[in-house]
Design a protein around this nucleic acid. Structure first.
Lengths: 153, 153
DNA sequence: CATTAAGACTACTAAATCGATAGGCTAAAA
DNA sequence: TTTTAGCCTATCGATTTAGTAGTCTTAATG
């Protein structure tokens, strides 16, 4: 299960993607709209900024905005920033490989073989799901729902 | 990342699968062979027993053994027992659905749509990877390695 | 240039989880 | 009835999670 922190981050980024190219958004507005504790959100946005996902402007008229277009920011990047590597075991991580302490023969570790498949499948999905994709899919779902509503009436 | 508990469980089960139909195995032997803290392993095996994965015999000549054949025990089952649902968010879990507290419109939640894909991909892999499969794959890898060694000499 | 708006940074805390240990209880053989 | 081996509960220290508080810094602007 992903943490609340990561969920908050994704919500905030989807919000910022929707408002893309409308200038900086205030933390306070984001917090209110998405119902995220403001001070907590501050820390999250800061982490995303340090990871190069967001940029910010201080002082009056300041706020946060995406560092790249919504097409270029993937859920994989966001989750890795806040949650750490996608891999279920460190020995199959592409971005943060580490040996599993007590595995004496990594190359014939059965757990590793299966977990490598899992990490590849996750990365495949999450690294290809950009904020723009997510926005699109939300719209599609809303239209589907309207369709159902149409028939229901 | 999966917990040590789950890794220990998988190691123990792979060991028991290899010794399948050779009668009960002592916790102490398992602990020594797989280098798992004995008392900790006790709790893990007990949990697996309560989940129906293992059976046990008390007293002299006792120990633990698989409740089903290695063909019928999947890594998905084991991970769900010790780690909880595979799903990254509760609202996409098939085995333990729960609403995400602060999601007002689940059906047009973008996070949910992507996470559903992730959970399905994970379940596909982990529910189809049985202990028997894992044993087979370990053997395959060992032979591959021997092949390389053959050419290297 | 003083004020004010807004993010940046550090520290702290309560509660939960993780990894592990301790010790007594119960069941089954011999 | 003694020994063997699993069953069960409690406890513990370290880490992580979710969140709060307060101060510092930077940038507009009147």
């Amino acid at each position: 299960m992903i943490s609340k922190k990561t969920k908050y981050a994704l919500k905030a980024l989807i919000y910022l993607a929707r408002e893309y190219d409308r200038g900086p958004i205030l933390i306070a507005d984001l917090a209110r709209e998405e119902r995220i504790p403001k001070k907590f959100l501050e820390l999250i946005l800061l982490a995303l900024k340090n990871a190069g996902v967001l940029q910010s402007k201080k002082g009056k008229g300041g706020g946060y905005y995406l560092a790249q277009s919504p097409r270029e920011i993937s859920m994989g990047k966001v989750i890795r920033t806040l949650e750490g590597p996608l891999a279920p075991v460190p020995c199959v991580s592409e971005t943060a490989y580490a040996r599993c302490e007590e595995c004496d023969d990594e190359w014939s570790c059965g757990i590793r073989l299966v977990m490598k498949e899992v990490r590849d499948a996750m990365a495949q999905i999450l690294d290809n799901a950009t904020l723009a994709d997510v926005l699109e899919r939300i719209e599609q779902e809303k239209q589907k729902k309207d369709g159902v509503l149409f028939y229901a009436i």
